[in-house]
C-alpha cells in the first residue's frame, strides 16, 4: 500500500502555479529523492503533505487519509530551516516531542545527543547554528514514524555535517517506513536513494527506481539530473 499518494495535485499562489497536476506514489520501506532545482515546487509539495498548505486542486493522501491530526501522528517532518524555540533545551524538547508523539524514542534521542557531545541541558540559543540543526534532525529521526519528510536536510551545511546527517537518517529510520528527501544536492544523497522523482516547474518530469535509471542510461543520477536541468 502506498504511504504517500498524489493525484493530480496542484497548488497556486495567486497567478503562480507552484505545483501543476503532480501524480506519484511512495511505497513503504523506500528512500525517495525528491529532486529538483530551487523553486521547482519541492517545499510546496512537502508542506502540502504536512497540512501546512491546502491544495488548489487534486488530492494528497497519507495512508489513504488527507493530511490532518491522524496523519500527523505518522509523519516525521524536518523543515528546511531551524524552527525550534531557542529558549528551550534539548532536554525540554525531548519532553515536548515525547508528550505529543507516541512513537518518540527518547533513549535514541539521548544516545544521538551524547554521540555528538551536545549538552541536553544547554538552551538552544547557546548552541551553534550547526548544532541547533543537528538537534532538530535528532528530534525528527528519533521518532519511529511511518514516513519521514525531510526538506533540504543537507542544504547549507559543510561536507562533514552532510555525512553525519545522512548516516543519522540511514541508521535511525524505521526500515518499514519511507523517507522522502527533498534536495538539489544529488551527488551527496545519491548513494542512499531507492527511487528518484525529478520535479521541474511544478511538474514531475521523471520518476523511477534509482538503480533502473542508472542501468538504462549508464549514468549516475547526478549526471542525469544535470542533463535534465541544464540551464
Amino acid at each position: 500500500m502506498a504511504i504517500l499518494e498524489c493525484k493530480g495535485l496542484s497548488k497556486s499562489y495567486g497567478p503562480v502555479k507552484a505545483l501543476d497536476g503532480v501524480s506519484f506514489t511512495v511505497g513503504s520501506g523506500r528512500i525517495v529523492g525528491l529532486l529538483g532545482p530551487n523553486g521547482s515546487g519541492k517545499t510546496t509539495l512537502i508542506k502540502l503533505a504536512n497540512g501546512l498548505l491546502t491544495p488548489s486542486s487534486g488530492e494528497l493522501l497519507i495512508n489513504g487519509q488527507r493530511p490532518g491530526v491522524e496523519t500527523k501522528k505518522v509523519v516525521s517532518y524536518l523543515p528546511e530551516r531551524s524552527c525550534l524555540p531557542e529558549w528551550m533545551s534539548a532536554w525540554q524538547l525531548m519532553d515536548f516531542y515525547g508528550d505529543f508523539y507516541q512513537d518518540f524514542d527518547r533513549s535514541a534521542a539521548e544516545a544521538m545527543l551524547t554521540r555528538l557531545s551536545i549538552d541536553p541541558r544547554a538552551r538552544l540559543k547557546h548552541l551553534s547554528k550547526g548544532n541547533r540543526e543537528k538537534v532538530q534532525l535528532i528530534m525528527v529521526m528519533a521518532r519511529k514514524a511511518q514516513i519521514y519528510l525531510l526538506d533540504e536536510p543537507i542544504g547549507g551545511v559543510d561536507p562533514a555535517a552532510r555525512d553525519f546527517i545522512l548516516s543519522t537518517i540511514i541508521s535511525n529510520y524505521n526500515p518499514t517506513a519511507s523517507v522522502v528527501i527533498s534536495t538539489h544536492l544529488i551527488a551527496d544523497v545519491e548513494r542512499v536513494l531507492d527511487d528518484v522523482i525529478f520535479i521541474s516547474q511544478g511538474k514531475v518530469v521523471l520518476a523511477a527506481p534509482a538503480d533502473q535509471l542508472r542501468e538504462q542510461q549508464g549514468k549516475s543520477v547526478d549526471q542525469i539530473f544535470r542533463e535534465v536541468f541544464r540551464c
Binding site: G51, L52, K73, V75, R81, C83, P85, F100
Partner: peptide, 17 residues
C-alpha cells in the same frame, strides 16, 4: 511567533487540532 512564524512549522505539524 509560535503559530505564524518559524515555530509554526513545529506547532502546525503536531497531531493537535
Amino acid at each position: 511567533d509560535n503559530l505564524l512564524r518559524d515555530e509554526g512549522y513545529i506547532m502546525h505539524t503536531l497531531p493537535v487540532s
